[in-house]
Design a protein around this nucleic acid. Structure first.
Lengths: 213, 213, 213, 213
DNA sequence: GATGAATGAGTGTTCATTCAT
DNA sequence: GATGAATGAACACTCATTCAT
């Protein structure tokens, strides 16, 4: 029922839809709920979006494009930049990268929830996500790891794809756990020590260094 | 459309619902679709389940109880049993455990998908899941890790909860990736080398052992 | 609001739709009006008809098929049969034919109204009408007239198609006038003297026979 | 989408509405379609017409008044005028009259279509049509025929009303057939030989003059 | 017990009409 | 005057649920 300042109806609807979709899922939400939440009449929604599905698509395309930009293009640059600070080692680079990335995720938690839920049920949107974000990200990550393997910083026997997916899984699940267990993300992930611990595990594992090596 | 043998209607409905829910989400599915898939009349559904929601609840309660049994109770026993084969080291125990666990997951992929999707939107079911599975599992895992820390097999500085969640995250995401990227899980996860690699990363990390140690 | 005996819901809906469509036109009618008129719930309509348009199509296809049978096939037979009563002259045959045809039209006036109104706006239905009724009827009529021309009963200079259309137009317009002017067709067309007069005009015209011949 | 010259908005809207109504029927048309067709904003329509129905009313009232003038008043004068060319016989007068009338109809085919369609569903408009056009026209026609009967030019037994309606029906149906069968009226009716044939049938009928008379 | 026809509240969507600019 | 964004009642259609058979 929040009155938005004029001209921004489309945004108000998008924001309302993000909120409602993330709470009730796409199919569990009603255009009338979205309208109420956006503070507009139900008919107004259809001046901005042809169908309900169109709202979802526009939301997800937006996220995907924003991710495609920040994750793929920008993180590449970041890698290279940090590289120049050559005394920062790989772990520190990854930690910094992760911290920054989690800030974005934290700021858009409902969007992330919608993304991971709805992508399962809308193959058209999943396709875009995979092509624009998953594959390019994986390429960047794999290239990075391969380079580090050549530099002797990462074990030669590590499979770059598996390592990448493991890392993303750790992070993703951390976010998911907090999201589902604590309902609200009171403890800021990006500032939690957990983040550092995850990267430590990724790099050094949990096993004690026995004298066996 | 599958005709079930007499008396098994409830099961036929459950199986049909699992299939349909996993493909279209709970709210995206229709009781008429479920009936058709189960080979029963729509009305029949409501002789076995008071409401549509009740089908979902019964499905998830079943999964949860099965998991509560196998994961929490049985895996504890397994830990202790393997323990006796004392020449099997920790990594091997975990790998065996994981392999066995993934077999179960693979056999119930649609159920897992429903679980992780719907639990977000049904707080009542989420509560049961967390209390019956998540917390007890975490307790077992943490206890195991703490013991191993005392035995000097796992680094003292490792946080048991974080390590557990990291591991679950790696595995969960592996499953998820295959599920979403390749649509069908042709490559058996439980037999893939990826599984071993994940456990290796968990225990030893990806970083090359420099002479720093 | 008329309660129909069980099993006949589809017919009740068709009848209700015929009534409502004929009073308000297809686009001016509401499925809820039709439901009310048929004495069923609105949802029931859609158990029998996929869409609102489907009701119209089924109605018109029914009329068209019934006309195709009675007008085209049966009237041909009637022509030939009456022919055998060879002392009945052409005018009497046509009058009898027309009288019988008008009875059918009178019994289905709302249907006729729907037919002539909606066929203008639904090209798919118009196509069926023209192909199944208009063209075959015209063929029969033209063949009849041509034969009569050869027999010296009809003027050689008469164009068969024009004559047919003129006759149909006279009759059609008579029906239309009564329909629109008197709202209800209290005076039975099929029994009115007007019918005979029309056929007289068709055959002998209105001009007085001057001695010019 | 046609931009109209300033000041002519009302006419632009009327013309657009005539086009759209004739293609989709009154209830099947949208004010937004009319606005687009007229090249004005949707709101503008409602500066010139209180309601959508008001557009239809104004269109039909216009037609009706124009017909009332041309058909009733002017054709009467024409009859009398032609009368003076006393060597033109009745058939020639009617043919000339019809030719001229059909030119008007051809130039306003969409209007005619709207008139005959919508008049069925709008009793208020039908009333005006009948009172201003149908009845007065009928009166003129009947008076003419009665006079011709007295002059011995038309058979005494002809019913003037029936004859008039028959004639109008022939013409009306000729127009309708072309309209519906050939979609576009490529062949000009007013110049087609069909017109003469119709008048010939009206006056002399189709029956061959046997020696029986 | 099993059925599936029937229901009607509820859904996404349309559209004539209003009104601030 | 003209606009077109905004409205919300009304629409065609869906679906979980009931119940007579």
């Amino acid at each position: 029922m929040v009155r938005k300042k004029q001209g921004d109806k489309e945004n108000a609807i998008i924001e309302a839809a993000v909120k409602v979709f993330s709470q009730k899922s796409y199919h569990g939400s009603t255009t009338s709920e979205i309208a109420k939440e956006a503070g507009v009449a139900e008919g107004t929604i259809f001046r901005y979006f042809r169908t309900k599905k169109d709202i979802l698509s526009k939301i997800l395309i937006k996220v995907i494009e924003s991710y495609a930009q920040t994750v793929v293009v920008d993180s590449l640059r970041e890698f290279l930049t940090n590289y120049k600070d050559s005394n920062a080692n790989e772990k520190e680079v990854i930690k910094a990268l992760l911290r920054e990335r989690l800030k974005v995720i934290e700021a858009n938690l409902p969007l992330v929830k919608i993304l991971f839920t709805e992508i399962q049920f809308h193959p058209d949107l999943r396709k875009v996500w995979v092509e624009k974000v998953v594959r390019p990200s994986m390429d960047v990550a794999v290239a990075y790891i391969e380079k580090k393997k050549k530099e002797g910083k990462i074990k030669a026997e590590v499979n770059a794809e598996v390592a990448t997916r493991s890392f993303v899984g750790m992070v993703f699940f951390m976010v998911l756990s907090k999201l589902m267990l604590y309902e609200k993300l009171d403890l800021s992930l990006s500032e939690s020590g957990e983040l550092d611990q995850i990267v430590d595990i990724l790099f050094e594992g949990i096993a004690a260094r026995t004298i066996k090596g």
